[in-house]
């Protein structure tokens, strides 16, 4: 528990997920992290030129020829190293499909995705992508510690020259020091999701992909986890692509918010969030935050077709 915290509010957030910002193995900010995991000299140079995630003209459609639906239509997006980008949009806008394409789980029909200059297939081979799915997706037969070390024990070929984190220290900084020997079923939903996030951080990937990681939690818990993630990320900058349904969540966490529209899935607008960092729960109450909330909500309303309004109401109905 760091004593140097100034604001009570911040301390509240740290109660949920304490940080040890001065930890000895803490990697320096984004740049060095990206360099250390590139497999070859060429990849290091490529990373320096084209760090982060670059998505250019990605399209994807599902179904047979007669009833083909375009799910992603010419998506262009760049996420720099250490940048936090949220993707928000109505159901069916293809944001989950986009995430799957970046994660290498689905092939795009056209366009290109690179992670630190590597195509996705090479990026997964080099373990450059950390995925936090919607549910914690932990293995119930493994302890918390063994779940978090999973990324180190698979695809060991990509471990060389990589600065792995100490999993115990990482779990401690996530406020899970007492739980390392427990099993997932013994943890609350919020704690399970924190384990899943730790699992994605532990192998020091170039980019973190998070698919509505807090959507299954209740509102109070969700806010606690959200602030915990924010605190951790603020001292461990990574490129993050964060899918969410919650407008306040997107604003609180992000540098930019990508608003997507559906049918076909496309980027309607990218909104800059210029709130200063580090942010805390105090920011929810500021005028700037409320203004941004108004802007994002207005944009979301605009992209929603009349029929889709009720489907998206749950996502944007969150008030503060």
């Amino acid at each position: 528990m760091p004593a140097q915290q100034q604001h009570d509010q911040q301390r509240l957030a740290h109660e949920a997920m304490p940080l040890d910002e001065g930890g000895p193995t803490r990697a320096p900010l984004a740049g060095a992290g990206a360099g250390s995991q590139a497999a070859t000299e060429a990849a290091v140079q490529a990373a320096a030129r084209t760090g982060g995630v670059r998505i250019s003209n990605v399209s994807k459609s599902f179904g047979t020829d007669e009833s083909r639906t375009l799910v992603l239509d010419g998506i262009d997006l760049s996420v720099g190293m250490g940048e936090f980008v949220s993707v928000i949009g109505p159901s069916g806008c293809g944001k989950s499909t986009l995430l799957k394409v970046i994660a290498g789980l689905t092939d795009a029909d056209g366009g290109e995705v690179t992670v630190d200059g590597n195509p996705v297939s090479a990026a997964t081979k080099n373990k450059m992508i950390g995925l936090v799915p919607q549910s914690p997706a932990l293995m119930p037969w493994r302890t918390v510690l063994d779940n978090v070390t999973l990324p180190m024990s698979v695809n060991r070929g990509a471990n060389g020259g990589r600065s792995m984190r100490d999993p115990v220290e990482l779990l401690e900084s996530f406020g899970l020091g007492h739980a390392i020997d427990k099993y997932p079923a013994q943890l609350s939903g919020g704690m399970q999701q924190r384990v899943a996030i730790a699992r994605a951080f532990v192998f020091d990937p170039s980019v973190l992909l998070m698919d509505e990681p807090f959507s299954a939690l209740d509102e109070m818990n969700r806010d606690q986890q959200r602030m915990g993630l924010l605190d951790f990320w603020q001292s461990n900058r990574k490129a993050v692509i964060f899918i969410t349904h919650s407008v306040p969540e997107a604003i609180m966490l992000s540098d930019r918010i990508v608003v997507m529209a559906a049918h076909p899935g496309r980027i309607a607008e990218i909104i800059d969030v210029d709130l200063p960092r580090p942010r805390s729960v105090d920011d929810y109450a500021t005028d700037e935050f409320r203004d941004l909330e108004g802007i994002v909500r207005a944009k979301l309303r605009a992209v929603m077709e009349p029929g889709a309004a009720d489907a998206a109401a749950g996502g944007t109905g969150e008030t503060r």
Binding site: L105, L131, V154, N155
Partner: peptide, 11 residues
């Protein structure tokens, strides 16, 4: 979803 995590790690 656990399978997705492992596939992204190229397990």
């Amino acid at each position: 979803r656990t399978l997705d995590v492992m596939r992204t790690l190229h397990a």
